[in-house]
């Protein structure tokens, strides 16, 4: 990878992401300033104390786990547009599969970036329309009839995604899936902490893969 794209992507990414950080702080800052209602420092710290230990850890772990899959452009865009594990990462994986390119290659990075950008447009459009049509849509989407469909969105996503990737790499999949099944069945309360368990699964998969690779099984 030695194109002007790969040389410049980090410069572009850093500029856009730095600006994004400023923009994200703009909302609370502007509202605080306009209403003359800056937070009480102590209460703000107490609120952050309840959020930061878990979510900063998750954020840092996600950065190290997802960026090798998404590539540079995909990561700079994905971490700004959000909804990574439930949308952008599966979307990028699906796109790379369709295009027949490997994650980690330059082609994979480009396809992943295109998928994340398109996904970001569609998400924004759907949420925008949903907000405009709130009163008409809310009763339908929150109806009893559709509740089971939306309650099962993650199983519906990861069943299909799992079949594709496990069938291609079943030897690597055995150890992390066995571990996660036992863990979640034994400690169901961990369901809230699934983001933290993603790198645990990754570490087990990498460890098992390394052993099999060294022994020539892969």
């Amino acid at each position: 990878m030695n194109s002007s794209y790969s040389q410049n992507i980090h410069t572009w990414g850093r500029i856009w992401c730095s600006l994004a950080l400023v923009m994200f702080a703009l909302f609370p800052a502007a509202v605080s300033a306009f209403y003359g209602a800056w937070p009480n420092g102590l209460l703000l710290l107490q609120g952050l104390a309840g959020v930061v230990p878990i979510y900063w850890t998750v954020g840092i772990i996600e950065a190290f786990t997802f960026s090798p899959m998404l590539g540079s452009g995909g990561s700079y865009l994905g971490f700004v547009t959000g909804n990574l594990s439930n949308l952008k990462v599966p979307c990028a994986l699906n796109a790379m599969e369709i295009a027949g390119v490997k994650a980690g290659s330059e082609e994979g990075e480009l396809i992943s970036t295109i998928a994340i950008a398109v996904s970001s447009f569609v998400t924004t459009a759907i949420i925008f329309l949903g907000v405009l049509l709130l009163s008409q849509l809310q009763p339908i989407l929150e109806s009893k009839l559709l509740a089971p469909a939306f309650a099962n969105i993650l199983p519906a996503l990861f069943g299909a995604l799992g079949v594709v990737f496990i069938s291609k790499n079943w030897k690597i999949a055995v150890a992390p899936i066995s571990f996660m099944l036992i863990l979640f069945i034994a400690v169901p309360s961990l369901a809230d902490k699934v983001s933290i368990l993603v790198p645990v699964g990754a570490a087990i998969a990498i460890g098992a893969a390394r052993i099999m690779y060294n022994k020539g099984y892969l």
């Binding site: 899959m69 994650a103 990861f158 496990i166 790499n169 690597i172 899936i177 699964g201 998969a205």
Partner: peptide, 21 residues
């Protein structure tokens, strides 16, 4: 390449395990 495939499967395995919670 195996390393990146293992990262995918780590993520997928966590969410598949969650389904059994």
């Amino acid at each position: 390449q195996v390393f990146i495939d293992a990262l995918f499967l780590g993520m997928i395995s966590a969410f598949m395990g969650l389904v059994f919670a």
